[in-house]
């Protein structure tokens, strides 16, 4: 079965948004912060957060790993799902309202557009966090950090398999473009392993090999 959850409000981390804007360990000035806040408030009114998800078996055969309809040889995902017999697969979006604002400001206000990109990314991450918290509560076991197509060696092609499994187009309006990107743009698909033991890696990014990534979360 494919479950659907709608969220009415999401927390917002200003620190996270600033990180997307390139501030790392630097204090932003008051004007930047107030511009960010006004864009955040506008974005908040445009949010329509929704998630569709399912729970499925994790099957291993040689180097191949199958999670629902997703079959891959990704070493990253295999490491992530070590000792997991079951996993959740989900698609989450904050809705097309943010894209409408992005297109609008993309044509009229470069500053607001850049701030919105950061705000939208922050909100969709917050949605994923909130959803995974909810999953954790209903789960008899421990959740692994979520793993998305495009992370490490998990190919973007995996998106097609995830879309076949969840059909998020008709459930929450998330569609896959020809270039394997999603519309609305502030959407995420991910696999979350269910492990019998607590996970050694508590935080996202820590498990990623791209140590020079500009957006790496150091905490």
């Amino acid at each position: 079965m494919i479950g659907i959850r709608h969220f009415s409000a999401l927390p917002f981390s200003e620190r996270e948004a600033l990180r997307y804007l390139g501030y790392r360990g630097v204090q932003a000035d008051g004007e930047t912060l107030s511009a960010l806040e006004s864009v955040r408030a506008e974005a908040e009114r445009a949010l329509l957060p929704a998630v569709c998800w399912t729970e499925t078996d994790v099957v291993r055969a040689g180097n191949a790993l199958t999670v629902g309809t997703v079959t891959t040889e990704s070493g990253g995902l295999r490491r992530n799902l070590r000792s997991c017999a079951r996993a959740y697969v989900f698609a989450a979006t904050v809705g097309v309202g943010i894209d409408r604002l992005l297109v609008r400001y993309g044509r009229t206000d470069a500053l607001k557009c850049a701030l919105l990109q950061a705000v939208g990314a922050t909100y969709v991450e917050a949605l994923c966090d909130a959803f995974c918290d909810w999953l954790a509560e209903r789960t008899d076991g421990y959740l692994r950090p979520r793993f998305s197509p495009g992370y490490g060696d998990l190919s973007l092609e995996t998106q097609r398999d995830i879309f076949r499994l969840l059909t998020p187009e008709k459930r929450i309006g998330v569609t896959l473009n020809a270039s394997l990107l999603m519309s609305p743009s502030k959407s995420v698909t991910a696999i979350v392993g269910i492990s019998p033991t607590p996970c050694s890696v508590a935080k996202r990014c820590a498990d990623c090999e791209n140590a020079t990534c500009e957006y790496r979360d150091e905490l």
Binding site: V96, D99, R100, V103, E169, K170, G173, T175, L176, N177, A178, S179, L181, S183, P184
Partner: peptide, 13 residues
């Protein structure tokens, strides 16, 4: 006839 599964421009492709 259901939706085609892709979002139209300018929000999709």
């Amino acid at each position: 006839v259901g939706p085609c599964g892709r979002l139209l421009k300018p929000y999709g492709d």
